[in-house]
Nucleic acid binder design. Structure first.
Lengths: 343, 343
DNA sequence: CGGTATATTGTAAACGTTTTCAAAACAAGT
DNA sequence: ACTTGTTTTGAAAACGTTTACAATATACCG
C-alpha cells in the first residue's frame, strides 16, 4: 500500500501538501493540486483510515445500540439510522444487546475504546446503572441520542420518541367511534400496572384516558400479564382472552406482533375477521400489512424516528447544537381492514 | 483519559511493561504484573483502541455487506453473524447496499480504509466488476467470505450457501406427494429463464427436475415474470395466477414473502386456505410462522448460515485455514398448515 | 522599488500504542 | 567465581497521518 510519503515523493512535494490536497484544504496552488492528484491516482493511494482516525482521535463511526435486532421494529429503525448516517459520511456499528445488560456494557466499552463519535441508544433499562453509563459517555465527550425512550433526566441527552400516550388514546378512540364497547387490551405486565413511563405503559395510559373521556359505558378487559411482546405470547394470551370473554367485539394489542398473534388465535378459534372481531395493532411494521385482513394499527413514523435521531446526533457531533433536544413525534392511525364498525 | 504513559509512571515501570501486562504477554514477574494492574485500575486506564489498531494496522472490525437489511431474511442473517462475531471478540460494521452498486463500492472502500480484517458479503451482482473488487480485497489481504451466493470461481473465496436446487426439488416433491398435479410457481423473471446460477434459478431448476423425475402428469404454470420478490409482488402475481388458472390446487412461491402475498390474495379472492389451495413458501423466516394458516416452507438454516460464514471468516482471518472453503447446507421442509393432501 | 499583507509550501512534532533490540537480572551448571 | 542460558525489563523506533509553526513565494500598495 502506497502511503502519503510515497505520494509526496512521487509528486515532489511534502507530505503536508499531500495531506492538504487529500483533505481538500485551501491554500494549495491549482497546479500543485493537480500534480498531487495525478500522483495519487497513479499510485492508487488511499489514505490509511486507521492512521487518520488515530491522529485526530476520532473515527467516523457511530454506535447504534438496540435491544434486539430481530424484531421488525428494530430492523426498520436500524435501517433508517444507517441510511441517514451513510449519506452524511458516517458508518454505523450496529449492536444488539438482546436485553443483556452485560452485553450492553461490553458494547459500550468497545465503542468508547474505538472512539466512536456518537452513540444512538435504545437502552435496555432505566436503572441508575444506565444513568452512570450515560454520564461516562458524556465525560468522554461522546455525543448521545436516545431513541424510542427518554432519558431519566430530560437534559441528560437528546431523545426521539413517539407520543405513545396519544397513540393509545387515538387507538381507543378509533375503536370507540366504531361502536365498540367491550374491548380487550393485550398489554404487558408493566404496562398494565403503569409503573415506569415506558413505551407500553404510556400506551395503556392513553387507552385508559380515552375510555374515561369519550364514553361511560366502555368495558375494558386486560389480558393476562406477560413479559415479552412476541407473536407467540400474543397468540396465547389472545386465545385466553377470546375464550374467557365471549362478548368482546374488539381487541387492541399494544404491539403489532402481539396483534398478529391475537389475529392468529382468532382465526384458529374459528372467528371470521373482521366481521366477528376487530383487531387493532401498534407500530405499523411491515408485517402488519401482510396479514389477512390487513391490520389496522397505530403507526409509528419509524423511518422518521431513525432519521431524526441520526440527524440530531450528527448535529451534536459536529457541535452545531450542544443542548439536548427532546423530539416527540406523533403516531397516526393506519386504518386498514381489521377494524370495522360493530354490527 | 489516562494513557499508557500515565500508567507506566504511576506504576514505576516502562510503557513496554504496561503493554505486556495489558496484552497478557509472558515474561512479566507476578509482582510487577500486580502493581501494573493496580495502577490501571486506579487510573481507570483503557487502552486507546484507535492507537493499537493503528499500530497493528488492523481493527477488530469485520464488514458485513448485504443487499437489503429490511427483509426478514437479511435481518436474521445479519443477526446470526453479529452474534457469532461478538462472541469471538469481533465487531460488525453492517452495511446494506439496497442493490445499489455504487453504494456497495463506497462501502467496500470504507471498509478497506478502515482496515477491516475481513468481509462477509452477499454481493449484488455476479458481474466482473465484482470479480475485480474481490481480487482487490485479496490483494489487500482482507479475508472474504460469501454468503448465500457462490463466487464465480470456486477458489476465489469461501462461501456458504444452501442447496437451492435440492430445496426446490424437495418442495415440489412434497406437493406432488400430497397429490397436487396442477401447480403454480411464483418465481422471478431471471429464475424462470434460468440464466445465472443464482438462488432463484436454482430453486426453479430443482422444481423442474422434481416434476420430471417424479410424475408424468404434473402441470406447472409459471406466474408472470417480475423483478423483486416482495409481498406486494406476490399479491399481484398471485392474484393474476389464481384467477387466470382456476384449476390450480397448489402454489409454490420461491420466497416466503412472495408466498405471504399469494396467501393474501387467495384470501381476498375468497379461497378457504388450505382447503381450496395449498401454498408453499421458501426461506423459513419468522414471518412464515405468523400467517393463518401457518405457512409450510422450505426452511433455510439461516442462523447456521450466518454462523458458519462467521466462523469461516474468522478462521481465515486468524490464518488457521487459508484455502477457500465451499459450504453447502441443506434446506429442510417445514411442514405446517398451508399444505394439505389434495382432495 | 521597498514594504506589507497574503497565499503557499515545508519541517518537524505529535498522537498512543506495539515491538525490536539490547541490557540487566537471575538461575544453574561447572 | 565464571560461564552459559534464561527470564525479565527498558529505551527507542516505528506505524501514517494531521497540524502548528516557520519559511518562502507571491501579490498588492504606495
Amino acid at each position: 500500500m502506497a502511503t502519503i510519503k510515497d505520494v509526496a515523493r512521487h509528486a515532489n512535494v511534502s507530505i503536508a501538501t499531500v495531506s492538504r490536497v487529500v483533505n481538500d484544504y485551501r491554500h494549495v496552488r491549482p497546479a500543485v493540486r493537480e500534480v498531487v492528484t495525478k500522483a495519487i491516482a497513479e499510485l492508487g493511494y488511499r489514505p490509511n483510515g486507521l492512521a487518520s482516525s488515530f491522529r485526530t482521535q476520532q473515527s467516523n463511526i457511530v454506535g447504534v445500540l438496540l435491544r434486539q435486532q430481530r424484531t421488525p421494529f428494530s430492523s426498520a429503525l436500524a435501517y433508517a439510522i444507517e441510511n441517514t448516517m451513510f449519506d452524511q459520511g458516517y458508518r454505523v456499528l450496529l449492536c444488539s444487546t438482546n436485553g443483556d445488560a452485560e452485553r450492553e456494557a461490553a458494547y459500550l466499552e468497545t465503542m468508547l475504546d474505538m472512539r466512536v463519535q456518537g452513540i444512538i441508544i435504545r437502552p435496555s433499562g432505566t436503572g441508575q446503572r444506565m444513568a452512570k453509563q450515560i454520564s461516562t459517555l458524556r465525560d468522554r465527550g461522546v455525543a448521545v441520542a436516545f431513541v424510542d425512550m427518554k432519558p431519566r433526566l430530560a437534559n441528560a441527552a437528546s431523545s426521539v420518541v413517539c407520543d405513545n400516550f396519544s397513540g393509545g388514546y387515538q387507538g381507543m378512540r378509533h375503536l370507540i367511534e366504531l361502536g365498540h364497547r367491550r374491548i380487550g387490551v393485550v398489554a404487558g405486565a408493566v404496562a398494565q400496572k403503569g409503573g415506569a413511563a415506558d413505551v407500553g405503559s404510556e400506551r395503556v395510559r392513553g387507552i385508559r384516558q380515552a375510555a374515561a373521556d369519550l364514553t361511560s359505558d366502555v368495558e375494558i378487559t386486560y389480558s393476562a400479564p406477560f413479559d415479552s411482546a412476541s407473536f407467540e405470547v400474543g397468540r396465547e394470551v389472545g386465545a385466553a382472552l377470546i375464550t374467557s370473554q365471549p362478548g368482546l367485539t374488539a381487541i387492541f394489542a399494544t404491539t403489532d406482533m402481539l396483534a398478529l398473534g391475537v389475529m392468529h388465535s382468532a382465526h384458529a378459534l374459528g372467528l371470521d375477521l373482521p366481521r366477528d372481531m376487530s383487531i387493532l395493532g401498534y407500530d405499523g411494521v411491515m408485517e402488519s400489512a401482510v396479514t389477512f385482513p390487513t391490520l389496522s394499527t397505530i403507526a409509528q413514523p419509524i423511518h422518521e424516528m431513525g432519521q431524526i435521531a441520526a440527524t440530531t446526533l450528527i448535529d451534536h457531533m459536529r457541535g452545531l447544537s450542544t443542548t439536548p433536544r427532546q423530539v416527540v413525534l406523533e403516531n397516526t392511525l393506519l386504518q386498514r381492514d381489521s377494524t370495522i364498525r360493530v354490527t
